[in-house]
Design a binder for these strands. Structure first.
Lengths: 190, 190
DNA sequence: GGCCTGACGCAAGTAATTTGCTTTAGGGTG
DNA sequence: CACCCTAAAGCAAATTACTTGCGTCAGGCC
């Protein structure tokens, strides 16, 4: 029942979706997010506005789609050979990416135009996947590890909460501390 | 530099603000959030649309204002005579309030139309204040207590994260567990 | 009590959104 | 491979929302 159809690559829908997404990214860079309008995007994408309205409903849902795409991690987390180091480093990068002005903007957009919580769920899945990778590696090495959910509660949630609700004074050190505390009581704990 | 002036009660601005906020709440109940429009609110409040646009900028900022008001806690947390019980009970109520459809909607609105993060900060302050009260009482009793920030990281943040990103399967038991874990290592811990 | 400022009302102009109808691309079937 | 059938796109008119300039008024401050 989503407005985002599962289009096969190569079809016309796919080309339109591609063109529109590209147009959004280009225009975001050129004129800035607050000046963006649906007709402007449509013109750039070589599409009529009504197409966008019909497919995405409104600007916010479209931006939400684009934002989620950009929040998808591009590479698996770095491997430092030890859970504590992996998690610390991942948390730090995660925080830096999300707390940067551009990251925060994407995050807001992703949450914003998301009536059914679908895109938000996707963001959460990305993080869970990354953490799953880190933990799986540690298990492979024979380390004793916590649940993915525990790490989400102890690391991801605090970072997100602070980014969204109290955006001041976020440092890499904070991310490190969270990672360490999340591992207390496990073999990887300090 | 906010668009929300600190109007003294009794002035005309105050009356307009009051009328508009009331109109928003009434119409939210009557027609539902997605059907809300600025002209509709203006008509109900007995005000011209341009007044709303000039004062709030757009619908989202107005809704954000209204939402923050409704998220303000109405009473101090219950006193059960023991930190663990106080925190458990508070966390449960907090979760229930925020996870309910209406609470989630307010939360989203509050975050949503909030360019400067001002309203989000206010929400966080509300929670911090409530927790501060709970902890202060415990100190009064001679209990050993964690920081407000620790409780926020361990209880508030996970609840909020799940509400925003993974809205399924939230139960009071989860809130209890978070409260208990937040107090581990303190005199109130189980 | 009389100015002065900031906020509101009004109305005209501009831009965005919705909608009904037509056209077309491209997948499915024989 | 050609033909239909449907989902999605184009087009254009109608509606609705938003912006803006200017006149007016309330109410705070001498």
């Amino acid at each position: 029942m989503s407005r985002k159809p599962m289009v096969r690559p190569g079809g016309r829908s796919a080309r339109v979706q591609q063109a529109v997404h590209t147009a959004v990214r280009e225009l975001q860079a050129e004129v800035g997010r607050p000046e963006l309008t649906v007709p402007m995007i449509a013109a750039r994408a070589g599409v009529t506005p009504s197409t966008i309205y019909r497919r995405w409903g409104d600007l916010q849902e479209l931006l939400s789609d684009v934002a989620v795409e950009r929040l998808r991690p591009e590479a698996p987390p770095e491997d430092h050979g030890r859970l504590l180091d992996d998690l610390r480093s991942w948390a730090e990068q995660f925080l830096e990416e999300m707390a940067a002005p551009t990251g925060r903007a994407y995050l807001r957009d992703a949450l914003l135009g998301d009536p059914d919580g679908d895109n938000a769920g996707r963001c959460s899945d990305y993080a869970a996947e990354q953490i799953g990778t880190v933990l799986a590696r540690a298990v492979e090495r024979g380390e004793d590890v916590p649940d993915v959910d525990t790490v989400i509660d102890r690391v991801v949630a605090p970072v997100m909460y602070r980014i969204l609700f109290r955006p001041d004074g976020l440092t890499g050190a904070y991310a490190h501390r969270l990672a360490e505390e999340a591992l207390e009581g496990f073999s990887a704990g300090r």
